[in-house]
Computed example of a mutant assay.
Amino acid sequence: MTEQEKMKKGYLWGNEEENMALQARAKSLVNQFNSLPPEAMDERAELLKMI
């Protein structure tokens, strides 16, 4: 099983540079999602697809 497969299944995974970059990107997208008002449904839906 690759490190990315482990990450997607919720298992412990190695903190390789690529994986850490993916995690940082996801955190940034979640932060953007949380900053949007509830009525911004289209923008929230797009961010959810990216997350």
Rank of each mutant, 00 (worst) to 15 (best):
W13H: 14
N31I: 08
E3K: 00
K8T: 09
G14Y: 12
L36Y: 09
P37N: 05
N15G: 10
Q32G: 01
I51P: 00
M7D: 09
A40E: 13
A24Q: 11
P37A: 13
K6W: 03
V30P: 00
R25I: 07
E46W: 08
G10C: 11
M1Y: 05
N15D: 04
N15L: 13
E39M: 05
P38S: 05
Y11M: 03
M20S: 03
I51L: 11
T2M: 10
E18V: 07
G10R: 04
K9M: 13
M41D: 09
E46S: 12
Y11G: 00
Q4T: 15
I51A: 00
K9W: 12
I51M: 07
E5Y: 10
N31W: 11
S28R: 12
M50Q: 15
V30C: 01
L12K: 05
N15K: 11
I51W: 00
L47A: 02
L36S: 05
E5W: 13
S28I: 14
N15A: 13
L12A: 08
G14M: 14
E16D: 07
Y11K: 09
E39W: 14
E17I: 02
Q4R: 14
Y11W: 07
E43Y: 10
G10Q: 06
E39F: 10
M41C: 05
E16N: 09
T2K: 03
L12S: 07
R25Q: 07
A26C: 11
Q32C: 02
A45P: 00
Q32R: 07
K9G: 05
A24I: 12
K49E: 08
S28L: 14
N31R: 09
D42H: 09
Q32M: 06
F33A: 04
Q4C: 14
N34M: 12
L12F: 05
W13M: 06
K27E: 11
Q32K: 10
K49A: 10
L12I: 01
A40L: 08
L36H: 08
D42K: 13
P37L: 14
A40Y: 12
R25N: 05
K6M: 14
E5V: 15
P37H: 09
K9F: 11
D42N: 11
S28F: 15
R25W: 03
K8R: 10
E18D: 02
